Simulated assay, not measured.
Amino acid sequence: MRIEVDGRPPTADDLQTVLPAYGHFTAMQVRSGRTRGLALHLARLDAATRELFGDGLDGDLVRTRIRHALKDGPADASVRVHVYWPDGSDAATLLVTVRPPAPPAHGPQSLMSVSHLRPGAHIKHLGGFGQTYYGRLARREGFDDALLTGPGGVVTEGGITNIGFFDGTSVIWPDAPHLAGITMQLLEPRLPDIGIASRHAPVHLKDVAGYAAVLVTNSHGVARVGRIDDIVLPTGDDVVAAVRELYESVPWDAI
């Protein structure tokens, strides 16, 4: 793994800045210096920086920092951009990590429902103890990840994914506190191109068996959900395959 802080190897002072873990980030898959949904990543970083720190973040600076971290490295990588704002500073600090590329999403996934709502769910913020705790717990119980739910069994999102429920005509994204993932944002306006509507509505655990297909999305791609708790779900292979193909047709943007 390669780590840079403001374009250089981190110093001890830099580590003091990032240790409090108050900040936000975005995660992307990079292939040959390109990523999908670059404008959405930059908009996410700018909006969260304004909300958390009261000022915006220059997208060109972000791109410069990513390109520098990728320089002389592998053409394909998993990249994260973390944003901090040290007390007394007049500018944000950017930490960029470069890791080996993530494998494509695969399925079917199994999810264990847990009662947990992320604070500030619309922000991809740091310090996600709850997600990590419940994700590890789910894996110990034989599941792939956790499914976060709120009062009354309302479904919100996966531990590190968005989740969509296909009712035969539409993909329904839970209308509950969640992070609008980049993959979900790329799919929503494109789903009608393959004859599938997209909408947001409440989804409850007690109803999940009634959907024709369930899928999860994140930067790794699109995967089918085969089981939630002890409920075995319909395969919906054709629908999930069509959505996956649609996502894979999204063009890559030069960083």
Score class of each variant (00 low, 15 high):
I3Q: 05
P9Y: 10
T17E: 13
V18N: 05
P20E: 10
A27V: 11
Q29N: 12
S32T: 15
R36E: 05
H41M: 01
T49A: 14
T49F: 00
L52A: 09
F53C: 06
G56F: 00
L57K: 00
L61F: 00
V62W: 03
H68V: 10
D72A: 11
D76F: 07
V81D: 01
D90C: 13
T93I: 07
V96L: 04
A102V: 13
P104F: 09
A105H: 03
G107L: 00
P108D: 04
S115Y: 13
A121W: 01
H125V: 05
G127I: 01
F129Q: 14
F129I: 15
T132P: 07
Y133I: 09
Y133V: 12
Y134G: 02
Y134W: 15
D145Q: 07
G153E: 04
G159T: 08
T161H: 09
N162G: 03
F165M: 03
F166D: 08
S170Y: 10
V171P: 01
I172L: 12
I172W: 00
Q185C: 10
R190A: 10
R190P: 02
L191N: 03
D193K: 13
H200I: 11
V203T: 03
D207V: 09
A209H: 11
Y211V: 02
T217H: 03
G221K: 01
A223T: 08
V225F: 05
I231S: 07
D237P: 05
D238P: 06
V239N: 00
V243A: 02
R244N: 14
R244H: 14
L246E: 00
Y247F: 15
Y247W: 13
Y247V: 07
S249N: 11
S249D: 15
S249M: 09
V250H: 10
